[in-house]
Amino acid sequence: MNTTATTTHYPAATTHERAESHTLTVLVDNEPGVLARVIGLFSGRGYNIDSLTVSETEHQKHLSLITIVTTGTPMVIEQIKHQLERLVPVHRVVDLTVTGKAIERELALVKVRGKGEHRVEALRLADAFRARVIDATTESFVFEITGKSDKIDQFVELMLPIGLVDVSRTGVVAIGRGAEAM
């Protein structure tokens, strides 16, 4: 793609730093369109969204908390943070990956179908992962599992050969450790 540099009036791409994954929490006013603004920012500026969760957290104050997992070079991540801060309904943006002491959790519902040996194996694995059975029929289970995303990835992978049917995941929620507020 060398031609680009020589035949256009745009500067060439700079050599890339390594992309890394970051978890950001964004405190926003819970008003119509706020999620669209956040998502529009990501799609419009070409940033990645690996995971996104949102829910109202303080009903009285009309506040919602958005947790976003994104990948980018440190420069891009910093841009994302600043761009988010610039949105009018955004109160605060914290990069939990930078503050370095955050807890991340995700919840997944995993449906598995199988008979005989497979059922036993599914229950054994669920036990090892501390997943709970929340629905059962003679040929299926639905497990509820919480944990870090990679733990869930691993559980889902193990269930695949046993008879995985469906997975529904919440995406990551995160919070800082210790006594301080965000």
Binding site: H9, T14, G44, Q79
Partner: peptide, 12 residues
């Protein structure tokens, strides 16, 4: 559109 590496940069 501006080249992909400039998208999101407020390029010309």
């Amino acid at each position: 559109q501006v080249p992909t590496h400039l998208i999101g940069n407020d390029a010309f």
